[in-house]
């Protein structure tokens, strides 16, 4: 039986920055070009990691590239992002990372001490995360390319027993948990670029969320229906993806979303929505209603999870969308961004 050639729905004539920002444009590229060609005409919803069956053993596998400017910033550096990002993608897919391989694309002229600092950061992050860096590759490109360095990590891991995550498992009435305050990473990077002349006592939240995921798995096991780490595009993007994939509605209570003052302040000054800002050390979990309290307690009792919060729930409406409600009853839909969040003055 022959299947029809997959249809390319991506019509943009050229690649733009927005296609890498994690929002709608990224989705269009993935759904419209990569998925039809690579995954066939009816792929399952794309998750943070692929679960692959090798002769009866299920392993999780994922990859991620890290391009960040500046390379070093308060709270971390590109090397740490590269390790934690991949460990986290595996964790929120329900897997414990065992090993990473790393690929460096380096710009000719990059001072060795900068490279060494990043490699040391990666080693330290890997040790903290309990993961082995098993191998790698290096390429060097001409001066003027690669923004000093690009790092790609690919990770492999074993499934955490008891967890079975999928958008299909999400039910009406499920509760939405968030591991900690939002926006720290994205705002730290924005400030570290120095273009906006803002200063604040903020650090990237980059860390492995595996210990928190494991605590959650221990406490409620199959009660966890879905997880995601809200990186580029923020909480809004991750939850919109879920709403789209499961066809239900997500309702958030604005006053319950944890956020540091400095992140709020920067967002207000620049006209940004914290729900669209990248995080590198947080994750969202959708948990069965009757187990939500136990889940929240488990997170809060784990080091690093003290600020975890129950921020909303899943409902019938608004189908396929995310709604944020205030304490006084006003509400608004929060959509995915098209591209990167831009400061505004109006």
């Amino acid at each position: 039986m022959t299947t029809a050639a997959p249809k390319i729905r991506f019509r943009d004539p050229q690649v733009e920055m927005a296609h890498g920002a994690g929002g709608k444009a990224s989705r269009r590229l993935i759904d419209g070009l990569f998925a039809p060609i690579l995954f066939g005409s009816a792929p399952a919803p794309l998750g943070d990691a692929a679960h692959i069956n090798i002769n009866g053993t299920c392993v999780a596998m994922t990859t991620d590239s890290f391009v960040v400017r500046p390379l070093r910033f308060p709270g971390g550096s590109i090397g740490e992002l590269a390790v934690n990002g991949t460990v986290n993608d595996l964790a929120v897919s329900g897997a414990r990372a065992q090993a990473l391989v790393v690929s460096y694309v380096l710009e000719a002229g990059l001072p060795t001490e900068i490279l060494e600092a990043e490699v040391r950061s990666m080693a330290a992050a890997a040790a903290t995360a309990g993961v082995v860096i098993a191998g790698g590759d290096t390429k060097v490109v001409e001066h003027g390319k690669a923004d000093q360095m690009y790092i790609t990590t690919s990770g492999i891991g074993r499934l955490i027993p008891g967890l079975s995550i999928s958008p299909a498992a999400v039910r009406r009435g499920d509760k939405i948990l968030l591991s900690g305050p939002i926006g720290d990473h994205g705002i730290t990077i924005l400030l570290a670029r120095g273009e906006l002349d803002l200063e604040a006592d903020l650090r990237s939240d980059t860390r492995s969320v595996l210990p928190l995921v494991e605590a959650l798995a221990d406490a409620v096991g199959a009660g966890v229906h879905w997880m995601r780490d809200p990186t580029r595009g923020g909480v809004a993007t991750s939850l919109n993806e879920l709403a789209h994939d499961c066809g239900l509605g997500i309702m958030l209570s604005e006053d319950r979303i944890p956020i540091r003052d400095e992140v709020r302040g920067a967002c207000e000054l620049l006209g940004l929505d914290p729900l669209h800002i990248a995080n590198e050390g947080q994750f969202l979990a959708v948990v069965a209603a009757e187990q939500a309290e136990a889940a929240l307690d488990a997170l809060r009792e784990t080091p690093g999870g003290e600020e975890a919060a129950l921020i909303g729930e899943v409902g019938e409406q608004p189908a396929g969308a995310v709604l944020v409600t205030t304490l006084y009853g006003g509400s608004r839909i929060v959509d995915m961004l098209v591209g990167d969040p831009l400061p505004r003055i109006c």
């Binding site: 002349d197 803002l198 400095e262 302040g265």
Partner: peptide
């Protein structure tokens, strides 16, 4: 000037 801990000239 400071807004919620964020400072700018």
């Amino acid at each position: 000037v400071e807004v919620l801990g964020v400072r700018r000239k």
